[in-house]
Structure formats: structure tokens, C-alpha cells
Design a protein around this nucleic acid. Structure first.
Length: 435
RNA sequence: GACCCCUUCGUCUAGUGGCCUAGGACUCCAGGUUUUCAUCCUGGCAACACGGGUUCGAGUCCCGUAGGGGUCGCCA
């Protein structure tokens, strides 16, 4: 039988990375087995389900390249089927009506647990079981006539032909009930696998206060979808060897439930950042450029394409995240550079620096051609004849043209900026700090 | 509280009874390379929760204890 897995989120606001990891594992599992990956939108909670939320969900999935094999099933379209099934359970005596707790809310439909122990083979945790005495009947249709999650979820999984239910282990208790429901409904019980939870940097479950746990936030922070996918895939699973940065194909090939961890995993932003840096480095030039232009645009920087591309090649290996780009490249695009206070204090406001800058300017002015090689040679000559150290020459020049004391190699920076900008910036520096 | 689940370096993990004086990665530290920073290279710190068994031999199997988490809704 062909493997079919699904991601069944309720579109109530943002998509949490814990949920998204479950989606990734479902996707990986389906692809590994040459099966199908489906989406079901559990949008029965009308209050909280909005079209914007559904849109956000779809965007997040597209960003992570989680392609689905069939049109999404919207649970809200299935209410009649759910209710019909409840009627049948009622007719067979497998469910009953009652004003639960005598609250006066009216009668709801309650599913009768079979009174036998339930156990199943969990794909990750092994044999799981629960004694009949510890399980109680539960509501499947509210007194207002709407179906409850348990009923709808099981019926829709049957409808979509889901063979493997891979979800968070906060669903374990539900699974015992769901299995009883499948049986009562006369349906095959699918395979279940329960993933451990993801916890925050404090080792605690993510709460509403952890504003950084939504998929969209990671995108905002400059992480690449492929990097987040890879990182999340490795949070709770490993290929069994030392590979960490892996292609989709490698992950699909290596993914098995047996290799999934059964204990909670903690999200480590530092490692995600490292991994993202690896992905940034592997980006084809055109892709990096497209991203970088987008960033400049967002920052309101109007960049001349040819010039900008040269800048990007200089800074790209230093950018660990997308959001690093503008801070790294910003000074190339304005002569009104912002000077780093510490750099100025430490390296610029020193005896002899004004003289050094004047001389450097004179050298740059007289250079026949102004490029990487010529500035390199000229400045090295200057260092030798002046008796100054490299640092005493390079640092002031760098700060004069960029405002900061670190960055790519100085000579390529000078070459890309070009003589005109370099001279103008040295003048401005002289005026601002040594006038 | 009841029931269920979980427990290897700070973090993610390898480990399926001998190959483990426990391996890799991130972080951190030191040194090297470098005009600076980043990269890169080399090295280092750092863990089997605890207690009992079983066994010639236990991180690996069993039991218990402790700690953490989940569930106990007419939410999903």
C-alpha cells in the first residue's frame, strides 16, 4: 500500500516551528517511501480561522518547499459527513446522548470507550499502551451540533487515506481514543509515530511569550528556508553518520522513523545561524544577488546594478544571514557614511593620522590607474618609506572610506569604491575629525 | 493527584552487550594564517541522572528512585 502522510494544522494565527517540524517529518517520510504528502486545514474553529492565517500557512510551506500531492482538504466542508458518522455510531449503540454534567447546555453525543485495554506500536516510541480503567468516554458532537476534533480528525484521515500519522507526542493520549474510534467506524487503524516536543532555550515548552517560535519570525530574522528545513530535520533525527549539512535528496534518502529521537529537543539559534551561513555560502551567485538586491530595496537603498554586484562578491562570504547583508554593504552606497565610535576613538584620533590620510590621498590622486593591484602596491610602498606599521596606515584609510574597522580586504574595497568615492570620503573624514 | 512519555558533553547527536580510556557538530577557549574582522587550519574544555540487579563484560538489558514533560475541555 502506498504511504500517505498529512500535515493537519489549524490555521489559527502563526505556524509554530514545532508544528512545522512535524510537517517536515511527514514530508520526508512520504518522499522516502515514494508516497504522498497531503495537507488538511482543520479550520472548524470559525473564531480563530481566518483567510489570512491560511495564507500565512501556505506561504510558510512554500518557503520550506513542502509540496503537497493533492488539493488541501478543508475540514469545514466536511461537517455533514462527520455528523452522519456520529448518527451511525449512535445507531449501533457505540455512542450515546447525554446532557454531560447536567449543565443544561443540551445533549451532546458521547463516544463509548470499548472497555478494553488499548495498545499500539508507535513508530518512534515503541509499544505504547493504556489500561481500560484509565480511559473515559468522550464527546464527539457538541450540544450545539458541531463535531469535535477527535471525530473530525479521524474521519478525515480515513477520507484522505492516511496510512501514517506522524504528530507531536502531546497527542499520545488522543491516540488511544482515536484507535477506538477507527475500530468503531470499521476503518483500518493507521500507523502512528509520536515526535518529541521542541523546547525553547530555557528547556521549557514554547509559550506565547516566546515570540521567536513562529516560522515567519525565522524568515524575518534572515534565515533561508532550506537552512531552516535542514536544521529542523536534524532536531530530533539524525542520518546515523556524521553528516549535518545535507541536500534534500540526501535527507529523503536517509530518513526513517527508527532514527528519530524520543526525547525533547532544544532549539539552538547559534547552530541554526552557523548552518544558515553554510547555506548562504552555497547559494548560486544569481540567487544571492536577488536576495541582496531585495534587502537593499527594503532598506531604501537605490543601487546601480553593476556596482552592487561587485559589492556583493566582496561581502557575501561574511553574511551568515540575509539580514547581515545591509549592515555589511551599506557604506558602499552612501558617501555619508556612519563612523563607528569605537573605531574613531581607537584608530582615527591619533597623532599623525591626519598626516597619514593626507599622504594617502595624495598617493591615490597620482596613481595612473586606480585598482586593487595599484593601491596595494602604493600603500605598501608608503608603509615602507614612511616607517609606519601596516596597521597605522590601513586602519585609518579603512575607517575613512567605510566608517568601520573591519570588513573585506582593504584593496578590493578601495577598487570597488573607485577613486572618486575614496578621495571624497577621505576629504570628508579630514573635515569632520581634523578640521 | 491519576495516567502516559522522556533522561549521553551547555546544546543537537553517534552509540542497538565487548570496536567506548564514549565519537561528531554548534558554542566557548588557546595557538597559527591575516592590515582588521570573518573565513580557514591545529589543539583544548566538556557527558553516559542516581541506585540496585542480570552478565565473564552494561552507555547499551531489567527493576527502582529522582528530575523533566504531556494528558486529564462540549480547544485543536
Amino acid at each position: 500500500m502506498k504511504v500517505r502522510t498529512r500535515f493537519a494544522p489549524s490555521p489559527t494565527g502563526h505556524v509554530h516551528i514545532g508544528n512545522m517540524r512535524a510537517a517536515i517529518y511527514n514530508w520526508l517520510f512520504a518522499r522516502h517511501h515514494g508516497g504522498e504528502f497531503l495537507l488538511r486545514v482543520e479550520d472548524t474553529d470559525r473564531e480563530r480561522s481566518t483567510t489570512e492565517a491560511i495564507q500565512t500557512l501556505l506561504e510558510a510551506m512554500a518557503w520550506l518547499k513542502l509540496d503537497v500531492d493533492e488539493e488541501p482538504l478543508y475540514q469545514s466542508t466536511r461537517m455533514e459527513v462527520h455528523l452522519e458518522a456520529a448518527e451511525q455510531l449512535l445507531a449501533k449503540g457505540l455512542a450515546y446522548k447525554e446532557d454531560k454534567g447536567g449543565t443544561g447546555q443540551g445533549e451532546c453525543v458521547i463516544f463509548r470507550m470499548p472497555g478494553t485495554d488499548v495498545s499500539f506500536e508507535d513508530g518512534i516510541k515503541g509499544t505504547l499502551s493504556k489500561a481500560a480503567d484509565n480511559m473515559q468516554d468522550f464527546v464527539i458532537v457538541r450540544s450545539n451540533g458541531t463535531p469535535v476534533f477527535h471525530l473530525a480528525n479521524v474521519l478525515d484521515d480515513i477520507e484522505q487515506g492516511v496510512t501514517h500519522v506522524i504528530r507531536g507526542d502531546d497527542h499520545i493520549e488522543n491516540t488511544y481514543r482515536h484507535i477506538a474510534l477507527y475500530r468503531a467506524l470499521g476503518a483500518d487503524v493507521p500507523n502512528f509515530a509520536h515526535l518529541p516536543m521542541l523546547v525553547n532555550a530555557q528547556g521549557k515548552p514554547y509559550s506565547k511569550r516566546d515570540g521567536d517560535a513562529f516560522v515567519g519570525d525565522f524568515r524575518e530574522k534572515g534565515f533561508l528556508g532550506d537552512a531552516l528545513f535542514n536544521y529542523l530535520a536534524l532536531l530530533g533525527w539524525s542520518p546515523g553518520d556524521d553528516r549535518e549539512v545535507m541536500t534534500r535528496e540526501e535527507m529523503v534518502e536517509a530518513f526513517t522513523l527508527e532514527r528519530c529521537q524520543s526525547s525533547a529537543a532544544q532549539v539552538d539559534l547559534k547552530k541554526l545561524t552557523w548552518m544558515n551561513g553554510e547555506y548562504m555560502l552555497k547559494l548560486p551567485d544569481e540567487e544571492f544577488e536577488a536576495i541582496a538586491f531585495g534587502e537593499l530595496d527594503r532598506a531604501g537603498i537605490d543601487a546601480e546594478p553593476e556596482y552592487a554586484e561587485k559589492v556583493f562578491t566582496l561581502i557575501r562570504e561574511r553574511a551568515k544571514t540575509v539580514t547581515d547583508i545591509v549592515p555589511l554593504a551599506g557604506y558602499f552606497f552612501t558617501d555619508e557614511i556612519v563612523y563607528d565610535e569605537k573605531a574613531v576613538k581607537k584608530k582615527l584620533k591619533k597623532d599623525g593620522v591626519a598626516d597619514t590620510l593626507h599622504k594617502a590621498k595624495a598617493i591615490f590622486e597620482t596613481l595612473e590607474v586606480f585598482n586593487e593591484a595599484s593601491t596595494d602596491e602604493a600603500l605598501h610602498d608608503f608603509v615602507e618609506t614612511s616607517g609606519l606599521g601596516f596597521g597605522a596606515v590601513m586602519a585609518p584609510v579603512r575607517i575613512a572610506v567605510s566608517g568601520v574597522q573591519s570588513g573585506p580586504d582593504l584593496f578590493p574595497v578601495l577598487a570597488v569604491l573607485g577613486r572618486e568615492r575614496v578621495l571624497k570620503r577621505i576629504d570628508r573624514t579630514l573635515e569632520l575629525f581634523f578640521a
